[in-house]
Design a protein around this nucleic acid. Structure first.
Lengths: 365, 365
DNA sequence: CTGAAAGCGCTTACAG
DNA sequence: CTGAAAGCGCTTACAG
């Protein structure tokens, strides 16, 4: 049933790979109305109709009225794809994210679409499921629709060279969240270091001295940056951190819960953990509860992202808000700015994050 | 700053409304590589290149190899828009929903995109914010990109005639969630009546006899259907329901919380409420708590949708799961089926819902 | 097996 | 102010 969206084997077979995927446009309804139909109906040239459509001031007010009446009468729908082809323009932007069912990305996408729509662009959607292979296929397919640019939250393990291959010569790319070595694309990132710094400092102020960093993959840039902020805060407070308190975990609840035990493996034990993100934090709270340790009162936890569940968790989760919707708007603005400034050097934008204190970051025992 | 995405005043001005919205395609990178470039480079005709691109068996194996090598060498990207124009086909589908930041719709969109992608279609995204005006503008804009069809969750108050205007002659439409009188479009709906019936019956089995229906707008079809299921269950149990126990509320937490008092206005008071959806139910639980009534133990509540917060609410919310992602896949399948069967009569599909029992539907005192 | 020609629906100099 | 002509990047009968 499932068919490859597009082959990743290279440009040569791209077109053929989706043979039969395209459907005749509105077969149900016969041919669409075109400028020719309008022109012939009222005895003017197609050029004149086109000028009316594009709002040219050159057209006689009377002619314009007749054209407009006929457009309405025949229920004309402008074919922007054809116009884009002729004008060598684009009115769409491709948005490729990990997964829409992640509320963080859904909010982000919502913000992107809102900002793009306000400027007359349409969003072409794609999702990778965090698989570089799927990402390659999805980006290739989307590029065939000639978007003006691409907003991409790269899948873990993305190879910049491969990605460039899929892009053809379209250089209007904004990366979100994950930086790619070897690419000279614009980049929008959250202030990961500052966020983790704030969370860690907060725990220190609450009296904690033995603080772990829990979750994430050490080789991912966001995890690296968050760990840096964590170490920075500890360093400023003159605290050391044993390496066994830096615990990796895939960012899902189950694995996080399963790794809870590693926090209490041996020797001095932490009283708090700065978590890679909310999902990991919620998993950790689950793991703590199942070991009889009450999160918030007996062990402090902080997250990152402020997903909607954070506020209703038990206890409510102290975390960092990033306002993903606003980030989406920002990403759209940055990409549109790039379209207007094709030769400007690649730009790196760091978006602020804000500590949101809730009950999970209790006082040290 | 904000510009109208498209005018709603009619087709006549559509094209002109987004003057300047379109950006030159990849200005950064000069002209894109075309079939002509490939053909000239290796001394064959454009037709031959095209045949290779489309995987025709007619091409000599050697010629094919040379073409494919050149395609890769020049980093050719297939221009599917141009091909679609020539072939009078489409490889995109428009998806218009209320709001992506609603997890229900985000999951739905995710399912739609997944199923469409698997068939080689690209998703064009739009959102209405539940405003018929915005919907009109968004649908108009999307139709200009010649999608093969439209999956639409109509905004409250949508007028079928207006919508038809925006569609031009494209009749490949699948409505989701809200039916439109006066339209002969395919329709996918949740089994609202059965869902509310199950929830109500469940409360009755738990010993409740005085059960309210809380939230929703009485004139919306989904609310109407859910109330019907509620009444059906009460009727079967020989229970009456005073009209003051049918309380309307906008489907947001705040208004639901604010209307909690109406449940306890006068006379015999309910011990349970079937809520229009989860958001309303969560709002009601808030309202109950602030009046000192403990939801679940002192007053039973059920929701509808099973949003992710339902499971972590306090107490966890008994509700109806609808599997929005699967609904999204189903919507995509139904639309694609319509593309293949343009003349078939409009089809109505009812998707099953399932009762998920959690702690909020406690035993009657 | 390959090429020349026409055409999808639009726009844009250019003449008049 | 309006029209004839060329062309965006592709595909597809049709000849050969």
């Amino acid at each position: 049933m499932k068919k490859e969206r597009s082959t990743a084997r290279g440009a040569a077979t791209k077109a053929s790979s989706s043979k039969g995927a395209a459907a005749p446009t509105s077969r149900a309804s016969g041919r669409a109305v075109t400028v020719t139909d309008i022109a012939e109906a009222i005895g003017v040239s197609r050029a004149t109709v086109s000028l009316v459509l594009r709002g040219s001031p050159l057209v006689n007010v009377d002619t314009r009225a007749r054209v407009e009446a006929e457009l309405r009468k025949q229920r004309y729908v402008y074919n922007r794809s054809a116009a884009n082809l002729r004008r060598r323009t684009s009115s769409s932007v491709a948005l490729v994210i990990n997964d829409l069912s992640n509320p963080f990305f859904a909010e982000f996408a919502s913000g992107v679409d809102e900002a793009l729509g306000a400027k007359g662009y349409v969003t072409l959607l794609g999702s990778t499921g965090e698989s570089p292979q799927r990402q390659q296929a999805v980006v290739s397919t989307l590029m065939e629709h000639t978007p003006a640019g691409l907003i991409l939250s790269p899948a873990e393990g993305t190879d910049a060279t491969e990605l460039r291959q899929a892009l053809g010569f379209n250089a209007n790319v904004l990366l979100f969240n994950r930086e790619l070595k070897g690419g000279d694309w614009d980049f929008l990132t959250l202030d990961n270091q500052q966020g983790a710094y704030l969370a860690t400092k907060h725990l220190i102020e609450r009296g904690h001295r033995r603080i772990a960093f829990f979750g994430g993959h050490a080789d991912s840039s966001s995890c690296h940056q968050r760990r840096a902020g964590y170490k920075q805060a500890l360093g400023e407070a003159g605290l050391q951190v044993p390496p066994q308190w830096m615990i990796e975990s895939a960012p899902n609840r189950l694995e996080a819960a399963a790794r809870t035990g590693e926090l209490f493996a041996e020797g001095a034990q932490p009283t708090a953990a700065v978590c890679y993100n909310d999902t990991v934090a919620l998993g950790l709270m689950l793991g703590l509860a199942s070991r009889g340790v009450r999160p918030g009162t007996e062990f402090a936890v902080t997250g990152f992202d402020d997903i909607s569940e954070a506020a209703v968790a038990l206890p409510p989760l102290t975390t960092l808000t990033v306002n993903p919707r606003e980030r989406g708007r920002q990403a759209a603005e940055l990409l549109l700015h790039r379209l207007d400034n094709p030769t400007a050097p690649p730009q790196r934008t760091v978006a602020p994050v804000q500590l949101r204190i809730r009950d999970s970051s209790g006082t040290a025992a």
